[in-house]
Structures are given as structure tokens and as C-alpha cells.
Design a protein around this nucleic acid. Structure first.
Length: 213
DNA sequence: CACCAGGCAAGTA
DNA sequence: TACTTGCATGGT
């Protein structure tokens, strides 16, 4: 499995090259984006983030003080806006109370402890927590998403009923614990998924990885 | 028109 | 523990 996973990575990298994830101006913007992109296209998230920037609302202080309804209005393009507005506030409150809204304090925390703390915030699940750890804080944690499972399942690496942590373990136990590698690998899987492995538009016959299921 | 996108929590059995 | 459902906009 170690060789197979590394071979897939090299293949994807040779085809698509660097993906430059996560596109953002700051670590805080990555964290906000991680919540906004829950089951939502990145193009819509970009509109929401632009609105937050235009109204100077992209800070933990502003996210805590702005009214729920006004925040919801700003992030409307990202969908699920009422729920996500509450989730952003939950996260901003946590960030302020636990880490004094200080990214460097958060970065120096123990990864396992921090992951548990993030998961305890209502609105932050495994993928969002790991996206924050990896893409905002450079922690060597592999992010699993719907594309990851779909691609691995269709290529026979896993059964389609594997859970989040099972898929995550597959990567983390068989690859060097390297944030840069995890960063690029996950981004490449999403790239492949967008181009060739959409939910109901399977293009296995032209998938660069081949089709060996 | 239908389908879905870089999920999650709450409810049900 | 293991499903099911609500949440919602904007692009294809």
C-alpha cells in the first residue's frame, strides 16, 4: 500500500503539478473558508469571503460582535447561510476564549489536543478540523473528503463504506508524516475529482489513474 | 428542468 | 451504532 499510494501521488503530481492550496491571505481566512466550504463549491465561498473583506468582517473580533442576521447576509452566496453564520460565531468564540485570537498560540498547541478542541465546537467536524490543522496551521494531518473516498473506492483501494478515520489512517500510516506532502496530495485528489470523478458523472474510461476496480 | 459542490448536527430506530 | 434529513446558493 505504501508504494501504491506514493505511485498515485507521483502520477497526479506529474499530470497536474502543484495546486497551491489553500488560496487565502491569512491563516484566519483559511479557517473561515474551511467552515464556509462545507458541502459548497469554492466559487461560492470566494464570493462570501469577498463580502466579509469588503465589510471588514473577516476577523474574530468582528465575527463575534456582528449580529447573526447581518453575518448571514454577508455569507449568503456560500449557502446554508444561517447555520454557517452560527458556526463562524462558534468558532470565533472558541478562538478568542481558548487562544486569545492568536494564531501563533494555536499553532504551538499540541495537535491531538487541538483537534479534540476543534471537534468540540458545534459546526466543526473531522474534515473542517483537519483542514484547519493542515492548511491553516501546517500540522501534518491528512484531510479526507468526499472526493478522497470516492476516488479510493472506485480504484479499489478501500471499500465504499470506510469511515473518515479509516481512510485517514490509510494515508497517515503509509506516508511520511509531512504537512507539505499531505497538503499537495489532498489538493491533487480534489483536482482529479473535479475533473474526472464527479458524483454521478464518472469518467473512469478517461481517468488518468486508469480504472482497475 | 435536474443535479451537485472541498459537511455537519440533530433526529430516529 | 447506523442510517436519514435539513440546511441553500449558484454553476453546469
Amino acid at each position: 500500500m505504501k508504494k501504491r499510494l506514493k505511485r498515485v501521488y507521483k502520477k497526479l503530481y506529474s499530470i497536474f503539478g502543484r495546486q497551491y492550496w489553500w488560496p487565502a491571505d491569512s491563516a484566519f481566512e483559511v479557517m473561515v473558508g474551511a467552515i464556509l466550504t462545507q458541502s459548497t463549491s469554492w466559487a461560492n465561498v470566494e464570493k462570501a469571503i469577498l463580502n466579509l473583506k469588503k465589510h471588514k468582517a473577516l476577523s474574530s473580533r468582528r465575527l463575534r460582535t456582528i449580529s447573526l442576521s447581518r453575518l448571514a447576509l454577508l455569507i449568503r452566496p456560500a449557502g446554508y447561510y444561517n447555520i454557517k453564520a452560527a458556526r463562524l460565531k462558534n468558532f470565533a468564540d472558541f478562538f478568542h476564549k481558548q487562544y486569545k485570537a492568536d494564531i501563533s498560540k494555536m499553532r504551538s498547541a499540541n495537535t491531538g489536543i487541538l483537534r479534540q478542541q476543534l471537534l468540540s465546537v458545534n459546526g466543526i467536524g473531522p474534515e473542517t478540523a483537519d483542514s484547519i490543522l493542515l492548511y491553516a496551521l501546517d500540522k501534518p494531518v491528512f484531510v479526507v473528503d468526499a472526493y478522497t473516498k470516492r476516488i479510493l473506492s472506485r480504484h479499489g483501494f478501500i471499500k465504499d463504506n470506510y469511515g473518515y478515520s479509516q481512510v485517514q489512517d490509510l494515508f497517515m500510516k503509509n506516508l511520511k508524516r509531512d504537512a507539505k506532502l499531505f497538503n499537495e496530495y489532498h489538493a491533487l485528489l480534489v483536482r482529479l475529482g473535479k475533473d474526472y470523478c464527479k458524483k454521478n458523472k464518472v469518467k473512469c474510461e478517461v481517468c488518468p489513474l486508469g480504472y482497475d476496480k
